[in-house]
Design a binder for these strands. Sequence first.
DNA 1: CCACGATAGGTGTATCTACACTGAACGCAT
DNA 2: ATGCGTTCAGTGTAGATACACCTATCGTGG
Lengths: 122, 122
Amino acid sequence: MHVDLLACAVCHCLAARKQARALTRHYESRLRRHGLKATQFSVLASLALAGPTPMGELAELLGLERTTLTRGAALLEEKGWISAEKADDRRARPLRLTAAGRRKLDSAYPAWKAAQDSAATI
Amino acid sequence: MHVDLLACAVCHCLAARKQARALTRHYESRLRRHGLKATQFSVLASLALAGPTPMGELAELLGLERTTLTRGAALLEEKGWISAEKADDRRARPLRLTAAGRRKLDSAYPAWKAAQDSAATI
DNA sequence: CCACGATAGGTGTATCTACACTGAACGCAT
DNA sequence: ATGCGTTCAGTGTAGATACACCTATCGTGG
């Protein structure tokens, strides 16, 4: 099998990852002083918008692996920004935004907005 | 400051990260049996195309942080797929694809090609 | 020559990411 | 009621990612 190196240079995966890295650096440079990573901001915002949401459903919503959200949610819970509630289905642990989480989201919003509005310039 | 949750739902960063994650899963599901991650494949392919390249320049080329490449390159070097050479400038450590690295790239290429050709279906 | 800013690269630390595997609870069919 | 496949979530492990900070080397102006 002949390896087409030029084809490799236009790898869709690499391109998507490059752009995601660049955008992440752009957003996180502004979110940093609020102590938030890009993924953490989107978790808080999603919960604010959708209300209490089971882990699996939230992971699906954010397009990340369920087990990835497990780790990330644990960090947010330690900081007191979200809480895992009990549900009728005792397997489920619906995530809910706490009041502190809502305040964190509010305070970080202008930084996110600035990044969002200037994202096209990257 | 009023938080526009609907605006947060169309975060460019989240969108880019979602797509990058999905594409990465797609490519890595095929690269897995070759023991390669997406980033590792792009490092090998870039070195095959560009020849020996200093770390900083390669990081720039791949759009990733220089210190990120430091860790990734160490793993590839452990596996014997790349080697860090000595240069006239003793600070520099140009990375070079080894013969084993070239063989690894060759053997993984069909898997990458299959992922590339089916990437649009995600 | 040599001091000093510039440049190449590495380390400590923290988070993100995901697969393989595991445990627990659920619900249905018998 | 109970056995069993399904579903929800956590753990072990490994690599990706990046910032703040560090060391070593280089080149140049004085």
